[in-house]
Design a protein around this nucleic acid. Structure first.
Lengths: 117, 117
DNA sequence: CAGTATCCGAGTAGATACTG
DNA sequence: CAGTATCTACTCGGATACTG
C-alpha cells in the first residue's frame, strides 16, 4: 500500500479485498487447521482434533465447513466402515502459503518490537 | 510456508507469529482506521470517524487505543482550545504496507475464485 | 473536539452429551 | 469415526446519551 497515494473513497475495492482475506483467515483456529491439513496432505477429523491443541469438535466442524465453502479445502468421504473422511488443501488453498509466510515474518518482528525492547 | 515440511509441534513459534499478526489486524475496522491515518499522515479523531464509513465513536476509540498499544500509531495532544489530537503511523506501523498489499492481492483472487467462476 | 458511560442484542466459543 | 445438539458464558459491536 502506498500510503502517500491512499484515498479512502478511492480504495474501496482494495479495502474490501483486504477484508475478504481477513474474513477467511480470521479467528483463533483457521490457520492452525489449515496448517495441520497442509502438512499431512490428507488428514482426518479426529487427527486434526489432536493436532490443533485446544480446539473443540464443534469449532473444528464449523471451521472445516467455512474452509470448504471458501474452497480452501476439500472433503472426501471414503466408503469404509465406519466411513473415513479426508480433508485436503485445494490448489487455491495452497496459494495462501505466501501470505502465511508474510504474516509469520511480520508477527516475529512485531513480537520483538512489543516485548523485546 | 513449506507445507511438505510442516509439523504442528515443531512450528509452534510460526503459528504463534501468525496469530500475533492476526490479533493486530483482526476485526472489522483496524485496516480501515490504519488506512485513513496512513493517507493523511496526521489525522484527527473526528476526521477518521468520517473517513471510516459506519464506525461508531466507541469502536474508533477502542481501535485507536489497541493500535497505540501495539505501537502502530502515536497519539499527540496539541495544546489548543479545545485540544486537538493527532494520530500518526509509527515506523513500525508503516511496515504493515507489504502485508496489506499481499492481503489485497489474495483477496482479489479469492473473490474471483468464489464469486466469479 | 475527543472522547466515556451505559444498555442491549447478536454472534463466538467452551463443556458436555448424544447419534449413525 | 465424524460429527450434531444443547446449554451457557463471554465478547463484539451498535445506539444513545453524556462530559471536560
Amino acid at each position: 500500500m502506498e500510503c502517500e497515494e491512499f484515498k479512502p473513497n478511492e480504495y474501496k475495492e482494495e479495502m474490501m479485498a483486504v477484508q475478504d482475506t481477513m474474513d477467511v483467515l480470521q479467528g483463533k483456529w483457521k490457520i492452525k487447521v489449515l496448517s495441520s491439513i497442509c502438512f499431512y496432505d490428507k488428514r482426518r477429523f479426529s487427527d486434526i482434533l489432536n493436532d490443533v491443541y485446544g480446539i473443540s469438535n464443534k469449532m473444528l466442524s464449523k471451521e472445516l465447513r467455512d474452509l470448504e465453502i471458501n474452497q480452501l479445502i476439500t472433503r472426501t468421504v471414503l466408503d469404509t466402515h465406519p466411513v473415513t473422511i479426508h480433508y485436503q488443501l485445494t490448489e487455491h488453498g495452497k496459494t495462501l502459503g505466501t501470505i502465511i509466510d508474510n504474516l509469520t515474518e511480520w508477527g516475529k518482528r512485531h513480537r520483538k518490537k512489543i516485548i523485546g525492547e
